[in-house]
Write a protein that binds this DNA or RNA. Structure first.
Length: 596
DNA sequence: GTAGGGTTAG
């Protein structure tokens, strides 16, 4: 930063006789200023070049157009660009890219067409700048057009073009097209591999991401921080602690720790894999933190039910000078809901709106409903919903339904389910919740009729599963799973535990309620089983007294929570139980059993 | 002087 200022001052001091050189210096320094998002400094440089009279050189102008675009000052960029007499290709490319990264796709396309009409030959940078990587939604047809154009002109063989296309297709969940582009690209750069790996992890296809990661190493392509960031995200999604630790070792040996993406991904990985202490140690030892780093740590605490720590960190963030984002508030609110911190959640929500001027989105409202609902304040939750300035969507009603389940409010459950079935008829989760509520109060005919709807409409439900890592190996259990090699020992351990739990006063309300119901009904309680199986296995397979960490994918959780507490008490083991949605991906879960 | 790949919530 200081060096940059010096360099600018030097330009000033040297004056007219070195005008040409100074102009070149300015053009060189601008991209760095843009990357640092130093709007003020860039404007000073702009003023300086006006003063010194080389502001009209095309190199400087191109740099300024690009700089203002990257800082979100698209109007300034447009103004400058319009003033240029005959912009050359590089300058036009800068403007095309400027429009695109500010979400002004139509203007970008118009300029591109104008360029083509003028007979100018476009190059790979033109195409890359035209691809709406940051704002792809709703532009699939345009992207297809750019793709065809690239194939027709042969420019698709340029690895930058094909990487950008791979990325944009991945973002639109068009993963097969993305893979085809990757496979057909004649010279795969490191970025090509990274684009495909990231495409997989962002779509939850962790198995494919991992195998491509192995493949690239077989081709002697050396992973860089970008690669490892994606791989760490895959580990986090899988709960793959030992793989994550291995990657951490790689990060250290390659001295990538100072990369902010890598350190943030590491913190997130440790938190999601159950090692919150490790996560915090890394967080504290990381000198450079951005809003995402803070968010990852706050949500990590939330995941572990450590609401107080989450709030503490949240307030430290507010004083750190790092500006909060919508995700910051979501993470903090989520932590409050898991820890039953109603007053604190309310304060954070109010502060978000009034002190920070954030317009809440549906997820924030849903979090508030969740906070009130979980705490048993169902009336207040409903009141809150009724007072919303916008029409509440599925996340809001879903949160209310979840709360009704915990507090067994059948009437309100019926109201929210009705809304949910209208708004989101394909989502099986809501049917399962409602059916469970009916079952819990022994209203079997109603429960059966809800399940009938699921069956009739042929809706697929997400299978519940629980993961546990023992030593270096991950083990995944589903409901009633008998596929594990140590199945007999696991089930007898479970028997033993059930007996002891009963002696200790454990009453499995829901399970008894479901006792005389058909097999399929028991399946609705999948995660209870899978979680217990995983714990039973953990007890057998690990050293007495050691910590047991399990990760599950479904949110519904009434009986298992109490059962886990009992088991922990009886066996004297610390049991860390995490649930995160990113673990809710079938492919990833399957890969676990195969990989080892 | 323009252009490719990355982290956080649900």
């Amino acid at each position: 930063m200081e060096e940059m200022k010096e360099s600018v001052e030097m330009v000033g001091r040297n004056g007219k006789e070195r005008e040409r050189e100074s102009a070149r210096d300015v053009a060189t320094v601008l991209p760095a200023v843009a990357e640092l998002q130093e709007l003020r400094l860039g404007m000073e440089i702009h003023c300086l070049s006006l003063k010194l009279g080389f502001h009209d050189r095309v190199h400087v102008l191109t740099g300024l157009v690009s700089f203002y675009s990257k800082c979100g000052e698209i109007e300034k960029a447009k103004l400058l660009f319009r003033g240029i007499n005959r912009p050359d290709l590089i300058c036009s490319n800068a403007m095309i890219s400027g429009y695109t990264c500010n979400g002004q796709t139509e203007s970008s396309v118009m300029l591109f067409k104008k360029l083509l009409a003028s007979g100018e030959k476009v190059n790979s940078s033109t195409i890359v700048g035209l691809i709406p990587v940051s704002f792809p939604f709703g532009h699939l047809r345009l992207i297809d057009c750019i793709h065809s154009f690239s194939v027709k002109t042969g420019i698709v063989s340029n690895s930058s073009v094909s990487s950008a296309l791979t990325t944009v297709y991945s973002k639109l969940n068009e993963i097969e097209t993305a893979r085809q582009l990757f496979d057909e690209s004649p010279e795969k750069s490191l970025a090509s591999w990274n684009a495909m790996i990231a495409g997989y992890t962002q779509n939850g296809l962790t198995e494919q991401a991992m195998s491509l990661f192995q493949e690239m190493q077989m081709f002697n392509v050396i992973p860089n921080p970008v690669t490892l960031t994606s791989i760490l995200s895959a580990c986090a999604q899988l709960g793959a602690l030992s793989m994550g630790k291995w990657v951490h070792g790689l990060v250290k040996s390659k001295k990538f720790e100072s990369n902010i993406f890598v350190s943030t991904a590491l913190i997130d990985m440790y938190a999601k894999c159950g090692s919150i202490v490790e996560a915090r140690q890394l967080f504290d030892s990381t000198p450079e933190k951005n809003e995402v780093t803070w968010n990852a740590m706050i949500s990590g605490y939330g995941l572990h039910g450590r609401g107080r720590e989450a709030i503490q960190l949240f307030s430290e963030m507010m004083h750190s000078g790092i500006r909060p984002t919508g995700v910051t508030f979501l993470s903090a609110l989520y932590a409050c809901s898991h820890a039953g911190l109603v007053r604190e959640g309310n304060e954070i929500f109010q502060s978000m709106v009034h002190d920070h001027g954030f317009e809440p989105i549906a997820e924030h409202y849903a979090c508030m409903v969740d906070i009130l609902g979980r705490a048993g304040q169902l009336d207040k939750a409903l009141e809150f919903i009724k007072g919303l300035p916008v029409e509440p969507g599925p996340p809001v009603w879903g949160a209310l339904l979840g709360a009704c389940m915990i507090h067994k409010d059948t009437n309100l459950a019926r109201v929210s389910s009705k809304k949910l079935f209208e708004l989101d008829p394909e989502n099986v989760g809501y049917y399962v919740l409602l059916s469970n509520i009916y079952s819990a109060e022994r209203n079997y005919p109603q429960a059966a009729s809800v399940r009938q709807v699921v069956k009739k409409r042929n809706l697929a439900k997400t299978p519940g599963c629980t993961l546990i890592e023992v030593g270096e190996s991950p083990h995944v259990f589903t409901s009633g799973d008998r596929s594990h090699p140590q199945t007999t020992a696991i089930y007898s351990k479970l028997e033993e535990l059930t007996g002891k739990m009963r002696e200790a006063g454990f009453q499995s309300e829901t399970v008894t309620a479901l006792h005389d119901v058909e097999e399929e009904e028991k399946e609705l309680m999948v995660k209870v089983h899978s979680e217990k199986l995983a714990i039973a296995f953990g007890l057998i397979a690990t050293e007495p007294g050691s910590e047991i960490r399990i990760i599950k994918n479904l949110r519904v959780c009434l009986d298992c929570h109490t059962a886990t507490k009992f088991i922990s008490k009886i066996t004297g083991r610390v049991i860390v139980c995490l649930q995160h949605m990113s673990h809710n991906r079938k492919h990833g879960v399957r890969s676990f059993n195969r990989q080892t």
